[in-house]
């Protein structure tokens, strides 16, 4: 089946098998390997990307379902060599260790902050309930999101895809 998917502002057009997962389209067709696969069953959240502005687990969507979608992956977060405040927050607050869950955490946090610019600690923890991390114990991930929240409130125009 023919699909046309915009990823990080660039259009990728291909004939694909109907069963091809969006995550495999992103990784294998577009060659963007920052999106990771941790469970293939939409539980761990490592493969989270933004599709039309919504955080989705890209192992749960077929590429054909994403035809025409505007997708943002971790590679689309930094602009002009400047890390996005969320990326900066994870770095500043030691919000990652092995780094495997990090892209998904950042994409999911992005959705949270776009809906709620000043989330409480509890709201952050609840919002990340669908993203698993086995290294950090989550505490510094919460701090990373708080860091980004502060920074984005000071400079609200910084957002993915802008």
């Amino acid at each position: 089946m023919h699909v046309k998917i915009k990823i990080n502002g660039k259009i990728y057009e291909r004939d694909v098998e109907p069963r091809l997962l969006l995550t495999h389209f992103i990784r294998d067709v577009a060659g963007l390997t920052g999106t990771h696969i941790g469970c293939e069953t939409s539980i761990c959240g490592a493969c989270t990307v933004l599709a039309n502005g919504l955080a989705v687990k890209s192992c749960t969507m077929f590429a054909v379902q994403s035809d025409g979608a505007d997708v943002v992956t971790i590679e689309g977060m930094a602009k002009d060599g400047q890390l996005h405040p969320l990326q900066e927050g994870f770095w500043e607050e030691h919000g990652l260790q092995c780094g495997y869950c990090t892209p998904g955490m950042i994409m999911c946090s992005h959705q949270l902050l776009s809906r709620n610019a000043s989330p409480s600690e509890t709201e952050i923890r609840e919002a990340l309930g669908g993203n698993l991390c086995r290294c950090t114990g989550y505490q510094n991930i919460v701090k990373a999101v708080q860091y980004a929240s502060r920074k984005l409130r000071l400079a609200p125009k910084v957002a993915a895809g802008d």
Partner: peptide, 21 residues
Amino acid sequence: MKRKEDPRLVSGTSTYVDDVV
């Protein structure tokens, strides 16, 4: 000190085994 490892990891440019093609 914040980590030297992190820029590649937070930007999605690091290479895990599944990224080797």
